[in-house]
């Protein structure tokens, strides 16, 4: 039975990290209806900034973590200001193509540094022993990762529901012209959406980097790996990202735990989430928590 619970715990851990990594995509999509293909590069940048501050400059890792979130906050805001703001009102596909271009530019910039082609790992800052309860183990890295994920997701949920800026962002997401007509600055909202996405990406990068080690290719791949999570959750729903992330994590772990290696099956942990995604989308094409917009003509 402990095997079953171990898989549940692992699924929740993996799923919540997926949710955090997906959050940035949701935030940008929620406000601007744009899928940001440079998200993985921002995830990697966040992890490398934390590593640089901690290892090269000797800043305590907790402060490095906060500083990297702050830096990516402003980095993403600058990206929006310089490259994307002038595209407001242009076809969405143009904006998406720009994000693909941005991904290439970020790749190039990171390849100019040692981080582009070398492997690193964060120094041990958490106990290396696992926490074992009833035969179910979880490492401190994973536990702290999950806690940070839920704290951030809780904070973002509060921000969107209660704060004026958050409500403005939701208003822009619902109806840009309507929002403008009541005095909300749409460009400012876009900037903030990108900035908060950058902040969450840095957090995700640090957590993933602490688990997998710091390898640029691995880190930026998560910007794409979490796309199914975002689609399943409903593209613009934070709650959807969390639920979908955990569903994906659980499916992956259960498939790996119970199907792989049995019945001649292999690699189901990678395939099953996509199969389930397709099945769910057949019945709920807008995802689990996506908004089904009805236009009356």
């Amino acid at each position: 039975m402990s095997y079953f619970f171990q898989i549940v715990v692992s699924g929740i851990v993996v799923g919540s990290i997926y949710a955090l990594a997906a959050l940035g995509l949701v935030l940008v999509y929620k406000s601007s209806r744009v899928a940001n293909f440079a998200h993985g590069q921002i995830i990697a940048a966040g992890a490398f900034i934390t590593f640089f501050l901690t290892v090269r400059l000797g800043v305590p890792i907790f402060f490095s973590f906060l500083a990297s979130m702050l830096i990516t906050f402003f980095l993403a805001m600058s990206v929006e200001r310089i490259f994307l703001r002038r595209l407001i009102g242009e076809p969405i596909i143009s904006v998406i193509m720009v994000t693909i271009g941005l991904a290439s530019i970020f790749d190039g910039l990171i390849y100019l540094t040692p981080f582009g082609s070398e492997n690193f790992s964060f120094p041990d800052f958490l106990p290396t022993e696992s926490i074992v309860v009833g035969g179910v183990s979880i490492s401190w890295t994973q536990l702290v990762g999950v806690i940070i994920t839920f704290v951030l997701i809780g904070a973002f949920s509060w921000f969107f529901k209660k704060s004026t800026v958050g409500i403005s962002m939701r208003a822009v997401s619902d109806d840009q012209f309507g929002a403008m007509s009541v005095g909300i600055s749409v460009p400012r909202v876009f900037g903030l959406a990108w900035a908060t996405a950058g902040l969450s990406a840095a957090a995700a990068g640090c957590i993933i980097g602490n688990i997998t080690g710091l390898n640029f290719e691995t880190l930026h791949a998560f910007g794409i790996v979490v796309f199914p999570v975002v689609i399943l959750g409903g593209l613009d729903s934070i709650l959807g990202a969390v639920v979908a992330g955990i569903i994906m994590g659980l499916i992956q772990q259960f498939a790996s735990g119970y199907l792989d290696g049995n019945f001649g099956l292999n690699g189901t942990g990678d395939v099953m989430p996509y199969i389930i995604l397709l099945v769910i989308l057949l019945f709920k094409p807008h995802g689990l928590f996506g908004i089904h917009e009805i236009e009356r003509v």
């Binding site: 692992s10 998560f222 259960f254 290696g261 292999n266």
Partner: peptide
């Protein structure tokens, strides 16, 4: 085991 982009190999290792 043909691996993917795994964040956790618990299930595989225990299996």
């Amino acid at each position: 085991v043909e691996h993917g982009t795994d964040l956790d190999n618990t299930a595989m290792l225990q299996r």
